[in-house]
Design a protein around this nucleic acid. Structure first.
Length: 268
DNA sequence: AAATCGATCAACCGCAGCAGC
DNA sequence: CGCTGCTGCGGTTGATCGATT
């Protein structure tokens, strides 16, 4: 036996809400609260199903809602939370006061997804997209190709990055994990991070930290639950802050920023 | 000015989880 | 324990609007 529909759909209105309906719903909820969504439309004099009323209230009419686009900080938080929680929009929304799951879901699908793809990141896995994922090369061929790094691109990268250690950078750029579409893959031993005394500093202070305070990433104590990845993805430079951050699995614990100028990392 | 296209986002739908009986 | 009803969640749709041709 199938379940009954949430409401008797005959004679009920669907589609966009009118200002009049909004007014009725707001007035009713502000005076009576929403004890039972199923009964609410009748009591409020609305020809809508309870589900529709609930959605309208939670996604649009609630007085504590923030309107407008997500800020840069909110967007970053959404990306970070998504890497941990996946498509659990309500959980993600609970970390962003005044934002709804629907709003975040929409923003993810229309803005963030594109942004990440542009950066060479798979929005589903938060890992780098394979540069030739769509062609039909055999995996072995692909691996072989990955080893061959375009000399021009290497030179370009070298020009952009004023490295602390050119030998290391060279090794990095030529490493098998290096992804040609601006998504460098680096190994743990290739990372430099500030020593413990400077890890709590803000990103602004980091740029002034000297290279002598840097150390190899393997010296970091990771939480027991966290596994170090085989390779880690750095993704595109943030236009506003000038800082980059590493995706999964670091985001589960701490982000590591890349200062392109000095080619060093900072935990924050 | 009209037609077309793509982006956006409010709203809908179906399902799962939970509580009460 | 199983059934039923309610709520909330996540995926999807479709109306609308602005940009482009």
């Amino acid at each position: 036996m199938g379940r009954q529909p949430c409401c008797d759909k005959v004679g009920l209105k669907k589609g966009p809400w009118t200002a009049e309906e909004d007014k009725k719903l707001i007035n009713f909820i502000l005076t009576n609260g929403h004890c039972c969504w199923r009964a609410l439309p009748k009591l409020a004099g609305l020809l809508r199903c309870g589900k529709s009323c609930r959605l309208r209230w939670t996604n649009y009419l609630r007085p504590d809602l923030k309107r407008g686009l997500l800020s840069e900080a909110e967007e970053k938080l959404v990306i970070e939370l998504h890497s941990q929680l996946g498509n659990r929009w309500s959980k993600i929304a609970s970390h962003l006061p005044g934002r709804t799951d629907n709003e975040i879901k929409n923003h993810w699908n229309t803005h963030i997804k594109k942004k990440l793809k542009k950066m060479g990141i798979d929005p589903l896995t938060h890992r780098p997209l394979l540069p030739s994922a769509n062609n039909e090369l055999h995996q072995e061929q692909q691996q072989e190709e990955d080893k061959v790094v375009d000399e021009e691109q290497v030179e370009e990268k070298k020009g952009v990055m004023n490295t602390v250690d050119h030998k290391e950078t060279d090794a990095f750029l030529r490493s098998p994990g290096f992804c040609v579409d601006d998504v460098p893959m680096i190994q743990q031993h290739e990372m430099l991070v500030p020593s413990a005394s400077s890890t709590s500093s803000s990103s602004s202070s980091s740029s002034s930290s000297s290279s002598s305070s840097m150390h190899k990433v393997e010296e970091i104590q990771l939480p027991s639950w966290m596994e170090w990845p085989e390779s880690t993805c750095l993704y595109g430079l943030d236009d506003l802050s000038g800082w980059d951050f590493i995706s999964d699995p670091f985001s589960q614990c701490q982000r590591i920023a890349l200062d392109q100028e000095a080619w060093k990392f900072e935990l924050f």
